[in-house]
Amino acid sequence: MSELLPQNQLDEFKAKANCADHPQELIVDLLRAIQTECGWVPDHGIDLVADVLGVLPVEVEEVATFYDKIYRYPVGKRVIHVCDSVCCWANGSEDVLDHLQKTLGINLGQTSADGLFTLLPTCCLGACGEAPAMMIGLTTYGPLTPERIDQVLAEIREEAGG
């Protein structure tokens, strides 16, 4: 289980679940914690959540597969969520996506060959004043231009490489 969650975090969740009136409320927190650690939530991650919170695996699965920021399949180290909702769309989100696809050599839903980036769409990020926008990890970037995108990607590559 250790590769899913550091022991201290696991203990913390177990302790919380034990004293909570409704342990199930920790599902999203626990899924997010596992994802932070593993990058995504594998099947045994679902098992772990079910085990810690005392619910059935299907009860975890139906929640995990509902949210688009929980990944139930392997993704790259960084997931790029490109907003395609109306404000970004009206400001050229399709061009942003084109540029990302060309630069990374992948289509939506795919992961770059180096395993660094996965490209996914997202609905509105609440960055409508900074359209077009994208989110990588928990950081929102906008307004985007091809230059700005290249710069962000370069920074992340450098961070990952270094």
Binding site: P57, V58, E59, E61, T65
Partner: peptide
């Protein structure tokens, strides 16, 4: 028993068993 649940969402919603 709880064999089934809905997975995914929207148009892709389907009924699935564990995993």
């Amino acid at each position: 028993y709880g064999s089934y649940s809905f997975i995914n969402r929207g148009f892709e919603t389907k009924i699935a068993t564990a995993y």
